[in-house]
Simulated scan of single mutants.
Amino acid sequence: MSSTERGFIPVRIAVLTVSDSRSMADDRSGQVLVDRIALAGHELADRKILRDERVGIAAQLRMWSEDPGVDVVISTGGTGLTGRDVTVEAHRDVYEKEIEAFGTVFAIVSMKKIGTSAVQSRATGGVANGTYLFALPGSPGACKDAWDEILVNQLDYRHMPCNFVEILPRLAENRRRK
């Protein structure tokens, strides 16, 4: 079956902004993601802003990953190198499997835009409870790059030769074998 014969399958995406200072009114990175999710035809399942606190971030990720109304979680912010940047650690507290190549591909995309400053990114992706989880840097540009260059394709069932959507129903198959 060619990609033109496959129909679009919308997924339900929750957006989490991690910031000690942002509100919904000035959350530009979260808004970039919300706008692109809608433009692509997906559903915004939920949106929140949380402070840079590892336990709280991990708890929210777990809650969404256990919610059958959420297929994907994208967080923005808290992926840097400073002491308050704990989003990556919170994600890894929740992951059952890490998608190691996500960070690598994001670094390649970033290199084209910001050169060697891309080494400071700790973007990551993983799976928990049959839900995809992605942590992106907190800049609107990084969110645009991750969505436009990686996620828009991987979250589109029509993208060939493979994509995240086609294996979504099988992510938690180990739980059904018991």
Rank of each mutant, 00 (worst) to 15 (best):
119 V>K: 03
111 M>N: 04
154 Q>H: 03
7 G>V: 05
71 D>P: 15
101 A>Y: 03
71 D>I: 11
139 S>W: 14
174 N>Q: 07
150 I>D: 01
73 V>L: 07
161 P>L: 05
13 I>D: 07
168 L>H: 08
99 I>L: 15
24 M>I: 01
6 R>T: 03
134 F>L: 13
154 Q>W: 02
172 A>K: 08
135 A>C: 06
117 S>Y: 08
35 D>V: 04
123 A>W: 05
40 A>W: 03
97 K>D: 10
21 S>G: 10
9 I>Y: 03
53 E>P: 01
4 T>E: 08
64 W>A: 14
23 S>H: 09
75 S>A: 15
63 M>Y: 14
125 G>L: 11
114 I>W: 14
99 I>A: 07
3 S>K: 04
80 G>W: 01
64 W>K: 13
120 Q>G: 03
174 N>C: 06
46 D>R: 07
73 V>K: 05
93 D>G: 11
3 S>P: 01
158 R>D: 02
176 R>V: 05
68 P>N: 00
91 H>N: 05
30 G>S: 11
178 K>S: 00
80 G>Q: 00
177 R>K: 10
95 Y>A: 00
152 V>P: 00
129 N>H: 05
81 L>C: 10
58 A>V: 13
141 G>I: 13
132 Y>H: 04
22 R>K: 14
20 D>K: 06
64 W>Y: 13
153 N>A: 03
49 I>A: 07
115 G>C: 07
91 H>I: 00
108 I>L: 13
61 L>H: 08
117 S>N: 15
153 N>R: 13
95 Y>G: 09
19 S>C: 11
89 E>A: 03
66 E>W: 05
59 A>K: 06
58 A>W: 02
164 F>K: 11
22 R>T: 02
161 P>T: 04
155 L>K: 00
98 E>S: 09
58 A>D: 03
136 L>P: 01
117 S>T: 14
127 V>E: 15
94 V>P: 02
2 S>P: 09
65 S>A: 15
114 I>L: 14
35 D>S: 12
70 V>L: 05
169 P>I: 05
162 C>H: 04
52 D>W: 10
6 R>D: 10
134 F>Y: 04
79 T>L: 11
163 N>W: 01
138 G>V: 15
147 W>C: 09
98 E>H: 09
95 Y>N: 05
164 F>T: 08
14 A>M: 03
24 M>E: 02
124 T>N: 00
48 K>I: 09
12 R>S: 10
160 M>H: 04
84 R>T: 12
172 A>I: 05
125 G>I: 03
154 Q>A: 12
90 A>W: 00
109 V>M: 13
119 V>H: 00
68 P>T: 00
138 G>Y: 15
75 S>D: 12
76 T>H: 02
164 F>N: 14
31 Q>Y: 00
88 V>A: 10
29 S>C: 13
81 L>N: 10
96 E>P: 10
147 W>S: 09
118 A>Q: 08
109 V>D: 10
7 G>Y: 02
178 K>R: 11
167 I>N: 07
119 V>C: 07
35 D>W: 02
101 A>S: 06
160 M>G: 08
163 N>F: 00
123 A>F: 11
126 G>V: 05
